[in-house]
Design a protein around this nucleic acid. Sequence first.
DNA 1: GCCAACGTTGGC
DNA 2: GCCAACGTTGGC
Length: 154
Amino acid sequence: MNYWLFKSEPDCFSLQDLKKKKTEHWDGVRNYQARNFLRDEIEKGDMVIFYHSSCAEPSAAGVAKVVRSGYPDFTAWDPHSEHPDPKSTKENPRWYMVDVQFEREFKNPVTLREMRTMAGLEGMQLLAQGNRLSVMPISKQHFEIIVKAGGKKK
DNA sequence: GCCAACGTTGGC
DNA sequence: GCCAACGTTGGC
């Protein structure tokens, strides 16, 4: 089993939105490196840190679980979707997505600011300078440290 | 809103 | 295949 970190802008789609919907497809990723993870490496049963980016307090908000591995992102085919791509077709899909299920909301969201100073998170890709990937791997150790710091919400 | 870091595009 | 121009991300 592998661990991942997914970024989302909470104004767009937050962990609380996922909580309400229970399960949702993680569509709209339009970056090849992230696409390769979604298509080739992320498997059913993998765990995900749900990270809120581009907001007042960027932070790890909770945990989600992958319930369906990579399949074509059909929103790319729809000219009226958020992220249409006319070069992606049903016959030759360019973009992929997975389905995630709500697992846990942290009692205390773990802010980026905190993560930069927390022991044991050295080398985490999220903390690397200029990191822009919206889907990235995270080690089991780093995953567990963040989950522990986040705590359980009743 | 600014801007550094990065990915993508397209002319050559 | 290089690289300048451009667009986007995302923290601050």
